[in-house]
């Protein structure tokens, strides 16, 4: 029941369950051996641009790229 004890802590750090599970997943992927490791790492690539809108105008877009832990 380690996860039970951990829940309030990652919540308090401002993480959502998605971030938490992603960190766990990436740890599990890190345990793989080559060549499976690099194959699994290719499924971890992140790339998209996101821009917030305020009053009908887009703000400057931010690019999220290869930073799953951010």
């Amino acid at each position: 029941m380690a996860s039970t004890a951990a829940v309030p802590f990652w919540r308090a750090a401002g993480m959502t369950y998605i971030t938490y599970s992603n960190i766990c997943a990436s740890l599990v992927r890190g345990c793989l051996k080559e060549p499976y490791k690099s194959e699994a790492a290719s499924r971890e690539k992140v790339h998209f641009t996101i821009s917030k809108w305020a009053n009908g105008k887009p703000e400057k877009p931010t690019i999220r790229s290869d930073s799953p832990d951010q």
């Binding site: 971030t19 499924r43 992140v46 999220r64």
Partner: peptide, 14 residues
């Protein structure tokens, strides 16, 4: 891939 969409979903939630 799922990681990408998960990061996106996280951004939307926040």
């Amino acid at each position: 891939n799922y990681t990408q969409v998960a990061v996106l979903a996280d951004d939307i939630l926040k």
